[in-house]
Design a protein around this nucleic acid. Structure first.
Lengths: 248, 248
DNA sequence: CGCACTCTTGACCGAGATCAACATTCGTGG
DNA sequence: CCACGAATGTTGATCTCGGTCAAGAGTGCG
């Protein structure tokens, strides 16, 4: 049980390029982690909260969003299994965004206090966690570029590129296909486009033979052309190991 | 001399809400820092670099940007005095963006090795630096929201709101006015709008009596209305102390 | 069966991009 | 001192990408 529960966190740390020492491994195993299940479209953390725990996603998809005065919800990030979407809460007293499930999710959570102790005793693990926050920031940086300077088509293509690489790194891609149970309306919130335009843009990607996307299943049919269209360069993801979807 | 050189870093750390102990203060004072001067529009760090130093801005403005395949440069962030724009390089081996001066800049830099030693010996300082990266990430998160869901007018207004608060926190605002030596073209790269449209949008902000912006000088004439227009809520900036420009 | 959700398509509209011309300032060299 | 060109700011005309509105079609579920 314990092993399974720590699995995701370990994987995440390992992905960051760190080889854990026995004592570090032990410290992670000893972390008191509690696990729970949250249905789709429910808040995990809300803007203004002062959480005393961090959440790791075991399965499912979650998002970071903010609401504008008008009440419109805009997404700023999407989180895949292995991510720790509210790691910032460890150092920023007050949440400045909402984190909510997008699909049904299994999550596990750790108390800030336990993480702080872990960091104090194992500086390399502290650096690994710090690095995770930096890597998340790099993803947002790329997304700023995406929103500010790419067309709807390139943006959507870029999103799919990013998702397949991140899900692959989480071990959730079989061949060139993965589960991505998002509706077109979910996509529209994520990409910053209207649902209607997402629909039309999807049709272009499909009819060009770049992807298949039905029933919550994404399949990359032409990785090279999709990447070229999206102007995708995976270096911002800072993956240590290459994959089928490495960008060259 | 030494004192002056550390000033900015100390201020930044203090702003993050931490009261330094004597030994922490000493450790910061002992940091070997080198100072230099860089003219406007020159790269400080380039995409792909593997720097072994971190840079802190003493005076001037710098930006984080990426270039798209077409060669167009898009900005993802702007940095004011006291910021450490490439702090991510401490943990991410390879830069995934360019950092360049926007105006003439005085900068100081510290070797990664020295920062790592500092972090190892003074965990609270490590946390303070980590927090800075998280606070920078929060600014980007807000910017994603901005790009994806606000009109040109609100975006520009939001940018000015953010700048006045950040510059105020750096002690660079007199009354409701500060130096902001950016051309309309600089603004267009930052805000993700065409230069022509920046011009027209600026005229609206001016003729509405919200701001004055000439000769690189920004003056807020109606903070409340500007903030309302921008849907600005400064909580994402995670300032510990309030200011004239607190959002209520 | 009927309702709710998602996807699809068509028609129209508008915010902002693009292109082009002109004004103003300023530094530089003849 | 003036001439010239390079930045920068301003304005107008036109275009286009993507938004909005509305209707219908398919699907699953109570």
């Amino acid at each position: 049980m314990g092993n399974i529960s720590q699995l995701k966190l370990s994987i995440k740390l390992l992905n960051s390029g760190l080889i854990l020492s026995p004592s570090e491994n032990q410290a992670i195993d000893d972390l008191p982690v509690s696990r729970s299940f949250v249905v789709a479209h429910h808040d995990l953390v809300q803007n203004g909260d002062r959480p005393n725990r961090c959440i790791s996603i075991v399965s499912g998809l979650a998002t970071t969003s903010k609401s504008t005065r008008a009440g419109k919800r805009q997404f700023a990030a999407i989180h895949v299994p292995g991510d720790i979407p509210d790691l910032m809460s460890l150092h920023l007293e007050k949440m400045d965004c909402d984190i909510r499930t997008s699909t049904d999710c299994e999550i596990e959570s750790v108390e800030h206090e336990d993480l702080r102790i872990l960091c104090a005793r194992h500086p390399r693990l502290a650096f690994a966690l710090w690095k995770i926050t930096l890597s998340d920031a790099a993803i947002m940086r790329e997304w700023v570029i995406n929103l500010a300077s790419r067309s709807a088509l390139a943006r959507l293509a870029h999103f799919f590129c990013e998702m397949i690489v991140r899900l692959d790194s989480a071990g959730l891609v079989q061949g060139s296909s993965c589960k991505l149970p998002l509706t077109q309306e979910d996509l529209s919130d994520l990409i910053g486009l209207s649902a209607v335009h997402i629909n039309r843009t999807l049709q272009i990607l499909r009819s060009s033979g770049f992807i298949a996307f039905n029933d919550g299943q994404l399949t990359i049919l032409n990785w090279k052309k999709l990447g070229y269209l999206a102007d995708f360069d995976d270096s911002y993801l800072h993956m240590s190991r290459g994959s089928h979807f490495a960008s060259s």
